[in-house]
Computed example of a mutant assay.
Amino acid sequence: MLKTCSRRFNRGKLAAGIGALVFIFVAAPQATADGVEGCPSNTVCFWNQPNFQDARHDWPDPYWGSCDRSPVQPARSIVNNSQYAWRFYTELKYPPCGSDNPYVRLNPGEKNADLTVWAWNY
C-alpha cells in the first residue's frame, strides 16, 4: 500500500514563487555585450544632443595618436567605451587639440551626458 503525503502544496504560495522568479528574470536589467548607453566595446560613441538623445555616432577602435574632429559638430554627449582615456576639447579653436584649448578627460567606461565637444585625442 502506498503512503500518501499529508502535506499539501499551497497553490497560492507556489504561484507567487513562480511569479516572483518570472519577474526577476524578465524585469531585471539585462547585461549585454554593449557598454554604457548601448555603446559597443572598443568604441567611443557621440550623440548630437545632451543626455544621449538623437542619433548615436560610433567611432570603433579609435587610434590613440591622432587629433580628430568629433563625428558630429558639436558632440553633446559622449561615452568612452574604449580601452584608453581620451581628451575631449570643449572650444572651437585652431589647432583643435592645442595645449591652450580646455578639455574634459574621460577614462574607459566613463560618460558625460552634457558637454560640447569639437575635437578629441589621446
Rank of each mutant, 00 (worst) to 15 (best):
Leu2Tyr: 15
Lys3Asp: 12
Thr4Pro: 12
Cys5Leu: 12
Arg7Asp: 10
Arg7Gln: 13
Arg7Thr: 10
Arg8Thr: 13
Asn10Phe: 10
Arg11Thr: 13
Arg11Tyr: 15
Lys13Asn: 13
Lys13Ile: 14
Ala15Phe: 13
Ala15Ser: 07
Ala15Asn: 07
Ala16His: 07
Gly17Asn: 08
Ile18Val: 14
Gly19Ser: 13
Phe23Gly: 12
Val26Glu: 12
Ala27Gln: 09
Ala27Gly: 09
Ala28Gln: 14
Pro29Gly: 06
Pro29Tyr: 07
Pro29Met: 05
Gln30Cys: 11
Gln30Pro: 09
Ala31Lys: 12
Ala31Ile: 10
Ala31Thr: 12
Ala31Pro: 08
Ala33Asp: 15
Ala33Tyr: 11
Ala33Cys: 09
Asp34Glu: 15
Gly35Arg: 03
Gly35Pro: 02
Gly35Cys: 05
Val36Met: 06
Glu37Thr: 03
Gly38Trp: 03
Gly38Cys: 02
Gly38Ser: 06
Gly38Met: 03
Cys39Val: 01
Pro40Gln: 04
Pro40Leu: 04
Pro40Asp: 05
Ser41Pro: 08
Thr43Gly: 00
Val44Asp: 01
Cys45Gln: 01
Phe46Asn: 01
Gln49Thr: 10
Gln49Arg: 10
Pro50Thr: 06
Asn51Thr: 05
Asn51Ala: 11
Asn51Tyr: 12
Asn51Glu: 11
Phe52Glu: 00
Gln53Asp: 08
Gln53Arg: 08
Gln53Asn: 11
Gln53Glu: 10
Asp54Phe: 07
Asp54Gly: 08
Ala55Asn: 15
Ala55Arg: 11
Ala55Cys: 08
Ala55Gln: 14
Ala55Glu: 15
Arg56Cys: 05
Arg56Ser: 06
Arg56Trp: 05
Asp58Tyr: 05
Asp58Glu: 12
Asp58Phe: 04
Asp58Ile: 03
Trp59Tyr: 13
Pro60Glu: 03
Asp61Met: 07
Pro62His: 01
Pro62Phe: 01
Pro62Tyr: 01
Pro62Ala: 02
Trp64Glu: 13
Ser66Arg: 09
Ser66Val: 09
Cys67Tyr: 02
Asp68Gly: 04
Arg69Glu: 14
Arg69Met: 13
Ser70Arg: 01
Ser70Asp: 05
Gln73Ile: 08
Pro74Arg: 02
Ala75Phe: 02
Ala75Lys: 01
Ser77Lys: 00
Ile78Asn: 00
Val79Leu: 00
Asn80Glu: 07
Asn80Phe: 03
Asn81Met: 05
Asn81Trp: 00
Asn81Asp: 11
Tyr84Arg: 07
Trp86Met: 02
Arg87Trp: 10
Arg87Thr: 06
Phe88Pro: 01
Tyr89His: 04
Glu91Pro: 05
Leu92Met: 15
Lys93Cys: 14
Lys93Ala: 15
Lys93Asn: 14
Lys93His: 15
Tyr94Ala: 11
Tyr94Leu: 11
Gly98Leu: 08
Gly98Phe: 10
Ser99Pro: 10
Asp100Ala: 11
Asn101Trp: 10
Pro102Lys: 06
Pro102Ile: 05
Pro102Phe: 08
Tyr103Glu: 01
Val104Gly: 06
Val104Arg: 12
Arg105Pro: 06
Leu106Ala: 08
Leu106Gln: 05
Leu106Trp: 04
Glu110Ile: 00
Asp114Ser: 09
Asp114Gly: 06
Leu115Asp: 09
Thr116Leu: 10
Thr116Met: 09
Trp118Gln: 05
Trp118Tyr: 15
Ala119Lys: 00
Trp120Asp: 00
